[in-house]
Write a protein that binds this DNA or RNA. Structure first.
Lengths: 149, 149
DNA sequence: TTTACTGCAAACATTTTGCAGATGT
DNA sequence: ACATCTGCAAAATGTTTGCAGTAAA
């Protein structure tokens, strides 16, 4: 979860201009509690009174990814989407497979696993990516039955 | 690393027909020591005397993924590709960012981390995906200098 | 024989680009 | 004012589908 202002500020602080389309895009992104695709934004932007063009969406998404406000994630089915996140230290994402909501997670203890992998494989490990999928608390109560699925 | 025969056998055992195009595709896949994209295969197939059409490549890739012989992976840059792997128990992939070679890894210890995440977040965790990137032993010796990059 | 499979070419979907005009700073 | 940014529409990519012919089993 990242507020629209944080995103707008990020543009400003990084020396980008704060334009109407970028403001509108920031709102659209902030309105998502989690994962979304470019297609989602394009559709929503078209529906919104303050339009943002396809090209601008793609271009701004790229900027926001560079700034660390957006991370690309691989969806289980093979597609890919984005999640907004505060550009802090290394973290991973926990995604609700029902509503798309995302939570940032720390995964303490991963580094010792990676060290172990490095030792056993002989690879020099540079980076990694962990994505966790499940049901968020809200969706658990909304659709609790899962025994037997 | 998976041999071409293993792939061919997999088609047969799952009740699919073993055709010339599928044999050719199995060879192409086996020829990769690791990660590849659909584009790679389309290009290689076109270059090969035993052609395999675009459509067949996509269709067969889908089948092989279902059979567990192929896994879709997210490349660091956001794109995606495949790696061939024996359809065994749950495992993850360690990818060389230089040559693309992949190794299957077990990541023992991850489950306790996930349990911890579940407890702290309240999510019910269903699945996860870990991808590790680095330099394989061969590429480490081929391009050892990295101090300062 | 029977029916799954194949290639082609067209349909679709997604992302990128060139450019003239709009708009932040 | 000036350079960045925007939208458009076209182009480049990537993936899927319908169909008539081909070839496993």
């Amino acid at each position: 979860m990242v507020g629209a202002e944080a995103i707008v500020d990020a543009f400003a602080e990084a020396g980008y201009r704060v334009t109407e389309p970028r403001r509108a895009l920031a709102s659209l992104i902030a309105a998502h509690r989690g994962r979304f695709t470019t297609g989602d934004l394009v559709r929503e932007a078209a529906a919104s009174r303050v339009g943002v063009g396809r090209a601008t969406i793609f271009r701004s998404l790229e900027v926001l990814e560079e700034l660390g406000f957006l991370e690309q994630i691989a969806l289980p089915g093979g597609g890919h989407g984005f999640v907004a996140c505060a550009p802090t230290t290394h973290h991973h994402h926990l995604l609700c497979s029902r509503c798309g909501r995302s939570a940032d997670i720390a995964a303490t203890g991963l580094s010792s696993i990676l060290r172990d992998i490095a030792t056993r494989s002989g690879y020099r490990i540079d980076s990694h990516r962990l994505e966790v999928f499940g049901l968020c608390p809200d969706c658990r109560s909304a659709a609790p039955r899962k025994t037997g699925n």
